[in-house]
């Protein structure tokens, strides 16, 4: 079943075109890597897919709902309830403790603090970072911080997680650890993942990959 479909996306920032006819489709529980050189439009594609950016042209449909027809507030709500996000860095609120960071989306969804935080503790444990629960993001290592971020993206049991260079700021070993735990968790919960990366080793965790070059996307054909 197709969960998220984007067709013929165009997006320009001022005179600079970022996307010129990119598209992508992803099924439930599928993990798709978006690859391509820097400046190729990978992140812009991800932002359009997640409803953060409105494309100039083209449609993004999530579960047969056109994101372009939704209001700003509706799209916010969709991102909050159906999607999760992991970025390269700087995604945790620096003032909140790691536990509070993970509990934040649940609290925004209206959960009581106690309930939200007990689920956040489970989430942190699943990513093997229960020990940093009381610390602030600034006091953790890069790998721990990213795992907290993954825990936060997973805590609302989203249908899709958008990950933009989730290991970009990490060394190979820490990156691998984050990816292993991340992918283990999403495969267990059947969550789909859109993974933007320029590292083939990270892309190899995905089921298939889409290459973006000069604002156009291409499915990589399978050999054999």
């Amino acid at each position: 079943m197709t969960l998220l479909v984007a067709e013929d996306l165009h997006k320009a920032f001022g005179p600079t075109p970022a996307l010129v006819g990119a598209g992508l489709s992803i099924g439930a529980g599928e993990i798709v890597a978006i690859m391509g050189p820097s400046g190729s439009g990978k992140s812009t594609l991800l932002h359009c897919l997640a409803g953060i950016l409105r494309p100039d042209r083209g449609t993004v449909r999530y579960q047969d709902v056109d994101l372009g027809s939704l209001s700003d507030g509706k799209r916010s709500e969709l991102r909050r309830t159906e999607f999760g996000f992991v970025f390269q860095f700087g995604q945790l609120v620096p003032e909140l403790t790691c536990l509070e960071n993970v509990a934040l989306p649940l609290r925004l969804a209206g959960l009581k603090r106690r309930d939200a935080e007990s689920r956040a503790v489970e989430g942190l444990a699943r990513l093997e970072v229960a020990d940093v629960a009381g610390k602030r993001p600034g006091e953790t290592s890069g790998g721990q911080g990213q795992r907290v971020a993954v825990a936060r993206a997973l805590v609302t049991s989203p249908k899709v997680i958008f990950a933009d260079e989730p290991t970009g700021a990490l060394d190979s070993l820490n990156g691998e650890r984050v990816m292993t735990l991340f992918l283990g968790a999403v495969r267990a919960s059947g969550t789909a993942v859109v993974l933007v990366t320029h590292e083939p080793r990270v892309a190899a965790y995905a089921d298939r990959e889409v290459v973006v070059r000069d604002g156009r996307s291409r499915e990589v054909e399978r050999a054999g």
């Binding site: 916010s76 991102r79 909050r80 970025f87 995604q91």
Partner: peptide, 16 residues
């Protein structure tokens, strides 16, 4: 800017 943008991307309502 960045923490704010990330919060908004994650669907935190602008009102919050």
């Amino acid at each position: 800017r960045r923490p704010l943008a990330v919060l908004a991307a994650g669907g935190v309502p602008r009102g919050t």
